[in-house]
Design a protein around this nucleic acid. Structure first.
Length: 761
RNA sequence: GCGCGGUUAGCUCAGUUGGUAGAGCAUCCCCUUGACGUGGGGAGGGUCACAGGUUCGAAUCCUGUAUCGCGCACCA
């Protein structure tokens, strides 16, 4: 170190005893430490449970899968939080002697990835996917996915993840494809997957269907129009979407609404904005008499609930809007126009014909596709679905997929933390409808179904019955033999393959040793925002396919917000890159700042100040180590401290008492660790190390070393040494790089790695 | 509309089974010639959102209200 002047006094160069490394002459420097330590860990092979010491191999298995990051992306602070928590869980388990597996992978994230790449190609080359063709587009996406995969892996190493790279998986690789096909076929054979014609959520921007869960709602101001279809039809109706009225086939009123009861059963015909329509008046209890005029135009082809009403009343269906959200019927100025434009034209037509009665401003929710932001257009389509309410025989019991999902949590086999999410989970299942799993994009697992000539997809069928079972349809792991078969063009919802993740990564459908050892996994740690997409689907798949839960505990973390509490978003430009923070303050500091004070399920704020505070802490620990090492020259571990709960014959009564207090704290912290209270454990350690160990104990030690008895000095040296060695272990899961680095400078550690040493309790 | 959270010091939040409120940061004062200035000691600052109730005792349990946020549903 350079000579440093303090208070104007030149202290001269600092000197350390010979037994202390020159590293300690400088403040702790994560930049020159972290990559080096990670390389040592990787070389040791201990990330792979097969290579762990006997103590672990004989120990109870502990397994956790990494929620696979999307290959669209880079890591953000949210992923950094996830990695920090999981690495803490894993390091704690490993030190506690368990056979510990943390299994990595990445997610192909079908729609998200394809739309990113498509956009990029459009921007750079002005070409659409159809210009490139299926094969070429997939080649481009693969190249992109490969590149982003490498970035993600690099970032994970930076975060100190002690994860088993040898078992890495990808949701779209060959093994996972076999798992997907196997699962699909079994569900198909059990009648739980069917092809049906019905109104689905169509995303005109992404040109694909999406599931109910992939919709986001946005409140917007819009107009509610009240009008009559024609002068001759006595009932007025209200709508926010006049353009869809060209597809109406009925008028619905409440069965008890006296105003309209005289018309129920009657049929009216007219020409509406250039389109002939025929309207039957029906009575249905789903009509709210208080809303608008109390009568509603039924558009079976372009509204989910109208479709259901049409089913109940056997109404015909008339599609008037196509996949590009354009009108297919109507007079000049309406036909071939986008829905928004057509709406104006229809309203203008109503005005001209003096049919418009009222125009009100209202707020209502519009549905947007989560990935593309496109306005959802409900359209009737032939798609593949998973039946969640269908009863079937499952290991000798009559169940539905819904009851399987419910029971897994209700029975306590799966515990969700924080537990209020269990209620949210049940609530979601209660409203769950059949899951639409087919997507009209190219990137993803292809639907493993083949059609004989002539029976491929055609949407003209107006029957909504299961159309997926006849001699011209083949569902299988392998293509059918013989000529004239063509595979379904569609791919599967990305969550279908993610749902298999806990076991597809362990080798299922093969009966592997890994499956026996590591499934069900112990914990699933993930963001609370994907509880339905992912957590629920994994429970569905695992209970259905394996008759066991995918995990025993679900730990949900909240959102990481910026320092002002705002959501991280591109438009705000408030993203904090974990890599920048790591470069500046070190991964350990970043980890601590994400963990301390943040319980499961609660959102947190991340500001640079907080990270900086933990960088200071890292340096504090570094200096504590320097003090202890330079003042306890020649000390050796007293194995008694580790092996018999801190009692040591080499310490005075006073120091034994201090050790007892420390051990009590460590026991308390251990309880927190086992109960997923990492936020408390980290805080307690921080507080004890800084404000007890450093501020009080080390300060007292200076006095003892200056004027204590020989016995007191010896005792204190022993205490400091053993105490530090214990604290490094306890701090390791939280600050792995720093503690491993200090550990490597401890005398008498005989080349051992802290990461596999025994947890101090 | 149904459901779920939050509301504690200027800011960010702890407070695990009820025992008259804690931490960090910030502010102010002081100290510090050898582990560390990325330091140490100290001070000020809260009727724990509000109103009722249970209790010997409530930030903690119950009921209601306000307010912010979230989920689901509705969305003609």
């Amino acid at each position: 170190m350079e000579n440093k002047a303090v208070n104007g006094v030149d202290r001269g160069p600092m000197k350390l005893p010979d037994n202390v490394s020159d590293k300690f002459l400088k403040p702790y420097d994560p930049a020159t430490t972290e990559d080096r330590i990670y390389a040592i860990w990787e070389k040791s092979g201990y990330f792979n449970p097969d290579n762990l010491p006997e103590r672990n191999k004989k120990g109870e298995p502990f397994s956790i899968v990494l929620p696979p990051p999307n290959v669209t992306g880079m890591l953000h602070m949210g992923s950094a939080l996830m990695l920090a928590i999981e690495d803490i869980m894993v390091r704690y388990a490993r030190m506690s002697g368990r056979r510990t597996l943390w299994l990595p992978g990445t997610d192909h994230a079908a729609i998200a990835t394809q739309s990113v790449v498509e956009k990029d190609i459009m921007k750079k080359e002005g070409k659409s996917r159809h210009d490139l063709g299926r094969e070429e587009l997939l080649r481009r996406i693969d190249a992109y996915a490969k590149q982003s995969h490498d970035t993600i892996v690099r970032q994970m190493r930076k975060m100190a993840c002690s994860i088993d790279w040898s078992r890495e998986a990808f949701t779209l690789d060959e093994k996972r494809n076999l798992a997907v096909k196997t699962a699909f076929k079994k569900m198909y054979d059990d009648g739980l997957i069917y092809r049906g014609y019905r109104v689905v959520n169509w995303d005109p921007k992404g040109q694909t269907t999406i599931s109910d869960d992939e919709i986001e709602y946005e409140t917007r101001k819009t107009k509610l129009y009240t009008f009559k279809y024609s002068k001759d039809i006595p009932i007025s109706i209200s709508t926010t979407r006049p353009e869809t009225k060209l597809g109406d086939t009925a008028i619905a009123v409440h069965p008890e609404d006296k105003r309209y009861s005289q018309y129920v059963g009657k049929e009216f015909k007219t020409v509406f904005a250039g389109q002939e329509i025929s309207l039957k008046v029906i009575a249905d209890i789903s009509v709210e008499p208080e809303f608008g005029t109390g009568a509603l135009g039924v558009t079976p082809a372009h509204s989910q609930i109208d479709w259901e009403m049409a089913q109940r009343h056997e109404l015909p269906l008339k599609q008037v809007i196509n996949e590009y959200a354009k009108m297919t019927v109507g007079k000049e100025g309406i036909k071939d126009k986008k829905v928004a434009e057509a709406r104006e034209a229809v309203v203008a037509w109503l005005r001209e014909n003096d049919l418009l009665e009222k125009e009100e401003d209202i707020e209502h929710n519009i549905s947007l596709a989560q990935r593309t932001g496109g306005v959802i257009e409900p359209l009737p389509k032939l798609q593949w679905f998973v039946a969640v309410n269908k009863e079937f025989e499952h290991f000798g019991e009559k169940v539905t997929l819904k009851t399987l999902m419910t029971e897994a949590v209700r029975s306590g086999d799966i515990k969700i933390l924080p537990d209020r999410f269990e209620k949210i989970y049940f609530n979601w299942i209660g409203n769950l409808r059949d899951w639409c799993i087919s997507r009209q994009i190219w990137y993803g697992h292809r639907v493993p179904v083949w059609y004989k000539d002539g029976d491929s997809k055609n949407n003209s069928s107006s029957n909504n019955n299961d159309s997926s079972r006849n001699e011209n349809i083949h569902c299988g792991i392998n293509p059918p033999t013989g000529d004239g078969w063509k595979q379904d063009e569609d791919t599967l919802d990305t969550w279908f393959s993610s749902g298999l993740w806990t076991f597809s990564t362990l080798g299922w459908p093969e009966k592997t040793e890994d499956m026996k050892l590591y499934h069900p996994t112990n914990v699933l740690e993930t963001g609370s925002d994907i509880i339905f997409f992912w957590v629920a689907r994994m429970i569905l798949m695992s209970t259905y396919l394996l008759n066991e839960v995918p995990f025993k505990t679900v730990y949900l973390h909240g959102l990481v917000r910026d320092a002002k509490g705002r959501k991280i978003s591109k438009s705000l430009g408030n993203n904090v890159d974990p890599l920048d923070m790591i470069a500046k303050y070190g991964a350990d500091a970043v980890r601590m700042s994400l963990i301390v004070g943040v319980g499961p399920g609660s959102d947190s704020k991340i500001g640079e100040d907080k990270i900086k505070a933990y960088k200071n802490f890292a340096n504090k620990v570094w200096n504590i180590a320097r003090f202890v090492l330079s003042s306890t020259d020649g000390a050796k571990f007293d194995p008694d401290v580790v092996n018999s709960g801190g009692k040591s014959s080499k310490m005075s009564a006073a120091d034994s008492e201090l050790m007892k207090i420390q051990n009590a704290l460590l026991a308390d912290i251990t309880t927190d660790m086992s109960n997923y209270r990492y936020y408390l454990a980290a805080e307690k350690l921080y507080h004890y190390i800084w404000h007890e160990f450093a501020d009080k104990i080390i300060e007292d030690s200076k006095k003892i070393f200056l004027s204590g008895t020989v016995e007191d000095i010896a005792s204190r040296k022993q205490f400091l040494f053993d105490s530090l060695s214990q604290l490094l272990r306890a701090l390791h899961p939280f600050m792995p790089f720093l503690t491993e680095e200090i550990w490597s400078e401890m005398p008498d550690q005989k080349g051992s790695l802290l990461m596999i040493l025994k947890w101090p309790v």
